[in-house]
Design a protein around this nucleic acid. Structure first.
Lengths: 163, 163
DNA sequence: ACGCTTTAGTTGAAAGTTGAACAAATATTG
DNA sequence: CAATATTTGTTCAACTTTCAACTAAAGCGT
């Protein structure tokens, strides 16, 4: 890969502009979404957990599945679940098929909380992001980020193999 | 704003696709960037602090300026600075013009750490993101996110005024 | 069936973050 | 110029996240 040495080491102005614009906006937007959600007493990660459970068969997922789908560590999920269980949104049930395992199950109360928060959150996503994109922007975004995403996955797998 | 009621409440498939693609990729990418930086014993926020100081006049900024530029709270910066000071990358100096204040100053050691990490980090940004964008993608991204960013700022200011 | 390895999930301690309360210095206003 | 309000940065306590160690149950190879 001798050619790699010839690639420019630094970002050129156009690249830097895209990068900075991107990275700053991400953070601001996430903060805004968090703030919009806070009246519902939900954090973004907790909301995400509820969404994943709500979409699952029987509104339940194994802990590991949930952690992977939510892109959080098992340890973190375990701690979070304790808090969310106390809040009454979820409960944990023994798993008969695999007695090491547990089902994370969404309660009715959790469902109601989600249903109540969802329209506001959707509105928030619109206000803070999507409404500022044209249809073409949306298509461009999906295309670009799908590509980046699949690249990241490939890189991840390649890095795993090396180990 | 009666018209607002007529807006669709839910995201349509194209919008949902753009949103999910975006949000998942953001998180994966940040994780990858963090991991790429970790051999330098730097976290992304700490790297950002060093970059901001490195670009500042005299490699120094007031704590509040630094917190605002880095999009972190003063409290968090205060805690971080204690750690970074212990690592020898920065120091805090009394401010003569305003005796309440402090200068966050980058040390030579901090500069060396940054200079050593920067090429790898740049390479990382390329590998994980920019190289997967065409020039046109880059321009689109900058345009889109500049727009979203300015909207967020406007919204932020409007919300402040209400209070 | 026997060890050995892997997988599922939890735990506890350390580190990081948040938000409110605070002290000190400066700015503003009557 | 005194009283009040604001700004600067830190600190404490509560909470969250990470990392490594751990238990228990499967799985696997012989």
């Amino acid at each position: 890969m001798a050619i790699k040495k010839l690639e420019p080491k630094w970002l050129n102005p156009r690249e830097m502009k895209a990068w900075r614009s991107y990275i700053q906006t991400v953070r601001r937007m996430m903060e805004a979404l968090e703030a919009d959600l806070s009246p519902h007493e939900l954090s973004l990660p907790d909301y995400e957990v509820l969404v994943l459970l709500s979409e699952a068969e029987g509104r339940r997922l194994r802990m590991t599945e949930l952690a992977e789908a939510g892109l959080i560590s098992k340890s973190r999920l375990s701690h979070r679940m304790k808090v969310m269980e106390k809040a009454g949104w979820v409960k944990r049930e023994a798993c008969k098929e695999d007695r090491r395992g547990l089902w994370a199950v969404m309660t009715d109360r959790g469902w109601k909380t989600l249903v109540k928060a969802a329209p506001d959150h959707t509105e928030s996503i619109r206000n803070r992001f999507i409404d500022h994109l044209t249809v073409k922007d949306q298509e461009d975004m999906a295309r670009i980020f799908d590509r980046v995403h699949s690249q990241l996955r490939e890189q991840y797998l390649a890095e795993q193999d090396k180990k």
